[in-house]
Design a protein around this nucleic acid. Structure first.
Length: 491
RNA sequence: GGCGGCAUAGCCAAGUGGUAAGGCGACGGUCUGCAAAACCGUUAUUCACCGGUUCAAAUCCGGUUGCCGCCUCCA
């Protein structure tokens, strides 16, 4: 089965065939480090992290590059506002970025280059573009001439005439065509600058990605991606620069993730509804956020709300409860004999468990359909819960083997989705601890009440037993009586 | 104004030509002292609307309506 990916460039799903056999070069546009990362950055990071994991699972040798834009107008502006050097701002937010990505549990890319470390490469590339007639210097600035590049617009599906008709572009006297974009910008007094053949200045936004991707991945990348909004102008301009300079295709597959809306509104500074990763991780488990995102196709827009995160969190809790129960069941050393009449039900579960991985991979092979893949995880969970209920604390060898096979899927295939990474017991303990803190009860108090209730139950004093249960319930603690004792959890 | 996307049950959400995954919720059953949890079953004859192509359409084509994105910094 071949992996198929949707390519923004062609607007179609295509078979994924890397340029160099087994090796895959993948570049994702990172962040401009001038502020804290928000939920939109989180989605993009999670999407490409999942791709990165799945490609490796599929046996590819992946080099994943994700850059930092650490010099830019917004960084300079922020530095001026705070009266510090631009590097201070960049370093601060790079540090915060690492804290956030770590909090989300993301894999580290192979290379994380910074724009400011590749200035000379940019100067070289700009010089090449001038030599080849694709760019022109003007009063210390250098512009790329979009008219010279015949394919301009091929990624975003537009052409120069249409764009000029739209004409919402600011007129800059220096530009030959209003759509020409800056490769190099002369610096104003007091601004950071680098020496260049065109005078003191700094790079334009797009040039860094062309240079850094080429440096680490060669002239043609297998995968290039980022958020939808980068399609135009950023990625369009990257194609123009890179292909004009090398004469070769820049990237074979363009992958773009959809946006995150907040309560049906676009996230924006003016609406004041920017939700940072820190704010989310303060309140939610990182895997709940991940489960929420991966329940949607990566290209679709997604609407964030407390309710939807709560739904994801509920789902995550249930997965961990099942995993914990499997662990407990496998600890039991008794090995009961198979009862004959039960075999049919086991057969269904067995089928689900044994076919899981093939279905899971088939879903991800189809343009990374994580929502479908998760659907199979729910099926797997149902099958395993069925077995658990069925064995009733007396697992046969057959059941033990199926449970352990299922558990293996959760840890191995779960890794691809970045889910189920925590020790189930630890996950549940933490839930309890945090819940108790909010309720204002100690674990000891809860256990005492459970003891009291069980004493009442023994005496068939159902009234008292129910009173205790209801009083705990009103505080948000749910009791479950099982053959092996009374369990409790936070609602 | 130009370009593009989306519309699937009460809600969330897969599905791009072969007869509607999955989750949440709700209801019924099994289990239980009663619950809870878990399991089993029910919950869209139909995919915004109208027309067309086809043996066959949620899927393709044309039109209508509604929502959204990009065209300026944006994940």
């Amino acid at each position: 089965m071949t992996l198929r990916v949707y390519n923004t460039l062609t607007g179609k799903k295509e078979d994924f065939l890397p340029l160099r056999g087994n090796r895959v070069g993948m570049y994702a546009c990172g962040v401009t480090v001038y502020d804290l990362c928000h939920i939109g950055h989180a989605r993009s990071a999670i999407v490409f992290d999942t791709l990165y994991r799945y490609l490796r699972h599929r046996g590819y040798d992946v080099t994943f590059v994700r850059n930092f834009t650490d010099i830019d107008d917004k960084i300079i502006k922020k530095a001026n506002e705070e009266g510090v050097d631009y590097r201070t701002i960049a370093e601060k937010y790079i540090e915060e970025f690492y804290i956030d990505m770590g909090g989300l549990g993301l894999e580290k890319p192979s290379v994380e280059p910074k724009a400011t470390e590749h200035i000379s490469g940019m100067i070289d590339l700009i010089s090449t573009l001038i030599e080849k007639g694709f760019a022109y210097p003007r009063d210390g600035d250098v512009f790329f001439s979009v008219e010279k590049f015949k394919d301009y617009g091929k990624l975003s599906g537009r052409n120069l005439e249409e764009m000029q008709a739209g004409a919402r572009v600011e007129i800059d006297e220096k530009k030959e065509n209003p759509l020409d974009f800056a490769l190099w910008k002369s610096s104003k007094p007091g601004e950071p600058f680098w020496e260049s053949p065109w005078g003191e200045g700094r790079p334009g936004w797009h040039i860094e990605c062309s240079v850094m991707s080429q440096k680490y991945l060669g002239e043609t990348l297998d995968i290039h991606g980022g958020g939808r909004d980068l399609v135009f102008p950023h990625h369009e301009n990257e194609i123009a620069q890179s292909e004009a300079a090398t004469g070769k295709p820049f990237a074979r597959y363009w992958i773009h993730n959809g946006f995150v809306n907040i309560n049906r509104e676009k996230m924006s500074k003016s609406l004041g509804n920017i939700l940072t990763i820190k704010e989310i991780l303060n309140e939610w488990h990182p895997e709940a956020l991940r489960l929420f995102f991966l329940s949607h196709h990566y290209r679709s827009p997604v609407d964030y709300s407390e309710d939807s995160l709560l739904e994801a969190k509920t789902g995550l809790d249930r997965f961990y409860i099942t995993l914990h129960a499997i662990q407990e069941e496998l600890k039991k050393h008794v090995s009961a004999k198979q009862k004959k009449e039960d075999s049919f039900s086991i057969g269904n579960s067995q089928k689900t468990i044994e076919s899981f991985q093939a279905r899971f991979e088939e879903a991800l092979d189809d343009d990374f359909n994580t929502a479908q893949a998760l659907g199979y995880f729910y099926d797997l969970q149902t099958a395993l819960n069925g077995l658990l209920g069925f064995s009733g604390g007396q697992p046969t060898d057959e059941i033990r083997s199926l449970l352990s096979q299922g558990y293996g899927h959760f840890s191995k295939m779960g890794w691809i989705l970045g889910l189920f990474r925590e020790e189930p017991g630890a996950y549940m303990d933490r839930q309890k601890k945090e819940g108790l803190k909010n309720i204002g009860l100690s674990e000891e108090e809860v256990l005492n009440l459970i003891g009291e209730r069980n004493a009442a139950r023994k005496n068939k004093d159902w009234k008292k037993a129910d009173e205790i249960r209801n009083s705990l319930l009103s505080k948000g603690i749910i009791l479950e009586d099982t053959p092996s004792g009374t369990l409790w959890k936070i609602k």
